Simulated assay, not measured.
Amino acid sequence: MIPLNLQILLIVIILGLLYFLVDNIRKYKLELKYALLWLIMVIVTLVLAIYPKLLYYISNNIFIETPVNALYLISFIIVFIILYNFTVLISKLTNQTKRLSQEIGLLKNEIKQRDEKNQNINESP
Rank of each mutant, 00 (worst) to 15 (best):
I2N: 12
L4K: 10
N5A: 06
L9C: 11
L10R: 14
L15W: 07
G16Q: 08
L17S: 12
L17M: 11
Y19E: 08
F20G: 02
L21K: 04
K27S: 14
K29H: 09
Y34V: 10
L37Q: 08
I40Y: 11
I43P: 06
T45V: 05
A49F: 03
A49S: 13
K53E: 09
I58H: 05
I58F: 05
S59V: 00
N60P: 01
N60A: 01
N61I: 03
I62N: 08
I62L: 08
E65Q: 15
E65C: 01
E65H: 08
E65N: 12
T66A: 09
T66G: 07
N69C: 00
A70C: 08
L71R: 02
L73N: 00
I74S: 02
S75E: 03
S75Y: 03
I77E: 12
I78C: 01
V79I: 15
I82K: 03
I82P: 02
Y84V: 11
Y84D: 04
Y84N: 08
F86E: 05
L89H: 01
S91A: 07
N95Y: 06
T97W: 10
T97N: 11
L100Q: 14
S101N: 14
Q102L: 15
I104R: 11
L107A: 14
K108N: 13
E110V: 02
I111E: 07
R114Q: 10
D115W: 12
N120S: 06
